[in-house]
Design a protein around this nucleic acid. Structure first.
Lengths: 221, 221
DNA sequence: TTTGTTTTTCAATACTGTTTCAAAATTAAG
DNA sequence: CTTAATTTTGAAACAGTATTGAAAAACAAA
């Protein structure tokens, strides 16, 4: 169970963290909506606890943004007790709400409830699978024969780009433009090095990344 | 790729136009929100770059209006760096935003990102096929009677050039210029050697590469 | 800041493809 | 049929490219 706690007050985060970890859950934290959105793009959480009033990006907007790419259940932590908020929270795509001041136990209970609800109708996550190589794009996970392998950010991105262009001959230049960005002015060999590391991490499935001499690489199964 | 650039400053439009067209995109322009909405009604764009502060109708309102009849992705160009804009931009139905001053490259990158997100469907790949000889340019594959044959870089390039100029008599000089490049100062016989190897790899379909004595070669089916 | 991690650069090595050349084969013309 | 020009072919010399490891640089976290 992995929970993202989003609140600008360290005190509140600490309390929630304490309780959740005591219950055996894993936690991650964000101080504002912006950070929350960023973290959600990078990680897969089971549930998100989201405060409403925060600097930079408020809870409502953060949820709206997160909903564009993820269905992770959200529990709003509303400091104001007004109906207005509750209503808005539901409309915006949150799954539950708790009004401050709340008891940690109540929050835990809600987490369990929401997860149970969500666990029932699970949506198929889009995954790529090539023999023993499994790639979960949303969760940013890669498995080699069932074993999860840790990749660095660039390795992930490179692998994803390869997979999404499986069978297509890719020049180093194209890879640099697409994976590194148009504003990268670096050495061609950078690609090679990352390919090397990626291959190393893919173990026996290194074979999927084939070298096209004089051109670049291709992901092919 | 057709992009509508909406900004009241000619300077900014010019810069964006320049870059997009350099990248092979087509552009259209509008000076204010009103004009943008009108153009969107009349044309179909792949993406819209929309400034916020404009005379007549501001960017927010324009997007709101456009959203009534179109889902074309919008990237907001925010002159003010305040969070307020970002927030509002998301709520209003834009897909991304860039803060001025921006680098044109960043904008290009965002355009690509947004269009990728929007266009989900994959396109069928174009292949050449001559009897039992199949050539997949995108994937750099060549099949002889269903069997995949491995070609060296030069052989690939030579074959591709032949195929794209099927039926055309090609002098050695032209082949050297086009396949090897204008800066190649080598022997004419180099072509012969590569043709020999290519023919060897094409097995029975070697017949497609016919020798034009005193001239060069021709790919003909 | 310091520390640890990721990314990039670089150069040595290993590997593969390219070019040249000349002998042999083929073709066209007298 | 002979000759001269041209292409084909094989093999050796040459050139270029990918891989790798290590170190430097950049970056992020504590």
């Amino acid at each position: 169970m992995k929970v993202l706690i989003v609140d600008d007050e360290e005190m509140i985060r600490a309390v929630l963290r304490e309780y959740i970890e005591f219950e055996g859950g894993e936690t991650d934290e964000a101080q504002d909506g912006m950070e929350a959105v960023k973290k959600c793009r990078e990680n897969q959480y089971d549930v998100i606890l989201m405060d409403i009033m925060m600097p930079k990006l408020d809870g409502f907007s953060a949820v709206k943004e997160i909903r564009k790419f993820s269905d992770t259940p959200v529990i709003m932590l509303s400091a104001r007790g007004e109906e207005y908020d509750k209503l808005f929270g539901f409309e915006i795509g949150s799954d539950d709400y708790v009004t401050k001041p709340f008891s940690p136990k109540e929050v835990i209970a809600r987490i369990h409830a929401v997860m149970k609800r969500a666990g029932g109708g699970k949506k198929p996550r889009d995954m790529y699978e090539f023999e023993g190589l499994k790639i979960d794009k949303v969760g940013r996970n890669v498995y080699v024969d069932g074993e999860r392998v840790e990749l660095t950010p660039k390795e992930y991105e490179l692998l994803f780009y390869f997979v999404e262009n499986a069978g297509v001959a890719l020049t180093r230049e194209r890879l640099l433009n697409q994976v590194w960005g148009y504003d990268f002015y670096g050495d061609d060999r950078t690609v090679d090095t990352h390919v090397k590391m990626l291959r190393g991490n893919l173990k026996e499935y290194r074979k999927f990344i084939v070298t096209l001499r004089g051109l670049g690489y291709k992901f092919e199964t």
